[in-house]
């Protein structure tokens, strides 16, 4: 379970203090599939990054399975990001010098969880993920050789390589066409059901949001409402 308690994020810009998040409280049950919607600058991405251990809140706490994320040291926090959380960013987030399958496998290598003999298994799983996302023919392609949509799908595959308990996704289908978007959402749904993976999506796309179990709205750094969405599948 994820529990966000009284989270504030205040940025200092010159003499001005900008409150990106104001007293946000949120509980997300294990295996839930929720989305957060809101205008640009409403604080969605900031909330996602605090929840994922990427940026430190000015105030408040984030508990994942009872662990206070922001009290962890660098080693523990890195291990949490590596093993428990899968990130999908809203922009191209691939390492340009690595081919698709290496990009997907990278978190496992960084997590130091595999011995050399197990690397074969990691690559097999990476290949399986890429195939599921329709990229069988692009395993050894470098990011510069992939379209925006293909790069996004590689990044999605990478988020799943360590079979994380939580997926945080910022506009995960931003560069995808309608068909690919449906395929990705179907894939998310399948993973959600099979592994009880918790999904937290940030999107502008209301149609996409409605495919999740619960839709939270944000405005001016605050969570203002929560509605039940539809089925993700």
């Amino acid at each position: 379970m994820i529990e966000i308690k009284d989270i504030w994020k205040i940025y200092q810009v010159g003499d001005q203090q900008i409150e990106a998040l104001k007293a946000v409280n949120l509980k997300i049950e294990k295996g839930s599939f929720i989305s957060i919607v809101g205008h640009s600058g409403s604080g969605k991405t900031t909330l996602l990054s605090i929840l994922g251990g990427l940026t430190k809140p000015s105030k408040g706490s984030v508990h994942i399975d009872g662990i206070d994320v922001w009290t962890l040291n660098d080693r523990e926090l890195s291990a949490l990001r590596n093993q428990k959380i899968g990130f999908i960013f809203q922009f191209s987030s691939l390492i340009p010098t690595l081919c698709a399958i290496d990009n997907v496998s990278l978190p496992v290598i960084y997590g130091n969880r595999v011995m050399k003999n197990d690397r074969k298994k990691v690559y097999e799983y990476a290949e399986e993920l890429l195939s599921t996302l329709g990229l069988t023919h692009k395993l050894t392609a470098f990011p510069s050789e992939l379209s925006g949509g293909q790069q996004r799908r590689v990044a999605i595959a990478r988020a799943f390589i360590n079979k994380p308990a939580i997926i945080v996704a910022d506009e995960p289908t931003g560069d995808l066409d309608m068909q690919s978007e449906n395929d990705v959402m179907e894939f998310f749904s399948r993973i959600n059901e099979e592994y009880q993976t918790t999904f937290l999506l940030v999107t502008h796309n209301l149609a996409l949001a409605r495919m999740t179990d619960k839709v939270h709205s944000m405005k001016d750094g605050m969570l203002i409402s929560a509605n039940n969405g539809g089925s993700p599948s």
Binding site: L54, D74, S93, Y110
Partner: peptide
């Protein structure tokens, strides 16, 4: 910078 941030996001430690 972005790349280093991404590496940190996927689990790379400061020392890495």
């Amino acid at each position: 910078k972005r790349e280093l941030g991404i590496l940190r996001a996927i689990g790379a430690r400061k020392t890495s």
